[in-house]
Simulated scan of single mutants.
Amino acid sequence: MKRSFLANQIERFKLWWREPPTWRDRITGALVGSIGGFWIGILGRIILGPLPAPFSVVLLWGIGAIILFAVIGTIFPKPVSIILFPFSIWG
């Protein structure tokens, strides 16, 4: 009996999630984390900080978030890849 496309994708995701993270997963997590973290850092500074904010301060927040989320993406690659993926493509 042939399984549906969606059921097949769900099964593939479950298998991927249960496997230990590979180097490819860690590199992807760091890349997605750094791009998504950049937007979170910039938008977080603009939303939470006092305005007007100098461009250099906003840029420093973005760079700090890149470093932070790249490290988090390396340590926890699968959750970071899933949660921050929309930020990394819509940025």
Results as ranks from 00 to 15, higher is better:
residue 1 M to Q: 07
residue 3 R to E: 14
residue 4 S to D: 11
residue 4 S to L: 05
residue 5 F to P: 00
residue 6 L to Q: 10
residue 6 L to Y: 12
residue 6 L to D: 08
residue 6 L to F: 13
residue 8 N to C: 05
residue 9 Q to C: 06
residue 9 Q to N: 06
residue 10 I to R: 13
residue 10 I to V: 14
residue 10 I to D: 08
residue 10 I to A: 15
residue 11 E to T: 10
residue 11 E to I: 01
residue 12 R to L: 13
residue 12 R to K: 14
residue 12 R to E: 12
residue 13 F to V: 10
residue 14 K to E: 11
residue 14 K to S: 12
residue 14 K to M: 11
residue 15 L to S: 08
residue 15 L to H: 07
residue 17 W to N: 12
residue 18 R to P: 00
residue 18 R to M: 12
residue 18 R to N: 10
residue 18 R to F: 04
residue 19 E to A: 15
residue 19 E to F: 01
residue 19 E to H: 03
residue 21 P to Q: 02
residue 21 P to R: 01
residue 22 T to R: 15
residue 22 T to M: 05
residue 23 W to L: 14
residue 23 W to D: 08
residue 24 R to G: 10
residue 25 D to I: 04
residue 25 D to W: 00
residue 25 D to C: 02
residue 26 R to D: 02
residue 26 R to A: 06
residue 30 A to S: 15
residue 31 L to T: 15
residue 32 V to E: 00
residue 33 G to M: 01
residue 33 G to Y: 02
residue 33 G to Q: 02
residue 34 S to Y: 01
residue 34 S to E: 05
residue 34 S to F: 02
residue 34 S to D: 02
residue 35 I to A: 14
residue 35 I to N: 01
residue 36 G to W: 01
residue 39 W to I: 05
residue 39 W to C: 03
residue 39 W to H: 14
residue 40 I to P: 00
residue 40 I to L: 15
residue 42 I to F: 07
residue 42 I to N: 01
residue 44 G to H: 08
residue 44 G to R: 09
residue 45 R to I: 02
residue 45 R to N: 08
residue 45 R to E: 11
residue 45 R to G: 10
residue 45 R to Y: 09
residue 47 I to M: 11
residue 48 L to F: 11
residue 48 L to T: 07
residue 49 G to K: 03
residue 49 G to T: 03
residue 52 P to W: 05
residue 53 A to G: 03
residue 55 F to Q: 08
residue 55 F to S: 06
residue 57 V to P: 00
residue 57 V to E: 15
residue 60 L to G: 12
residue 60 L to F: 10
residue 60 L to M: 14
residue 60 L to Q: 11
residue 61 W to Y: 13
residue 61 W to I: 00
residue 61 W to S: 07
residue 62 G to N: 05
residue 62 G to L: 04
residue 62 G to R: 04
residue 64 G to F: 06
residue 64 G to A: 12
residue 65 A to F: 15
residue 65 A to W: 08
residue 65 A to K: 03
residue 65 A to E: 03
residue 66 I to C: 15
residue 66 I to H: 03
residue 67 I to N: 04
residue 67 I to T: 11
residue 67 I to Q: 04
residue 68 L to W: 06
residue 69 F to D: 02
residue 69 F to L: 10
residue 70 A to K: 07
residue 70 A to Q: 06
residue 71 V to S: 02
residue 71 V to N: 02
residue 71 V to M: 08
residue 71 V to A: 13
residue 72 I to W: 01
residue 72 I to V: 15
residue 73 G to N: 12
residue 74 T to P: 00
residue 74 T to Y: 15
residue 75 I to M: 07
residue 76 F to M: 11
residue 76 F to P: 02
residue 76 F to W: 15
residue 76 F to D: 03
residue 76 F to G: 02
residue 77 P to T: 07
residue 78 K to D: 07
residue 78 K to M: 09
residue 79 P to S: 09
residue 80 V to W: 10
residue 82 I to L: 15
residue 84 L to I: 10
residue 84 L to W: 09
residue 84 L to H: 09
residue 86 P to D: 14
residue 87 F to T: 01
residue 88 S to R: 11
residue 88 S to P: 09
residue 88 S to Y: 09
residue 88 S to I: 08
residue 89 I to H: 10
residue 90 W to M: 13
residue 90 W to N: 13
residue 90 W to R: 13
residue 91 G to H: 05
residue 91 G to N: 09
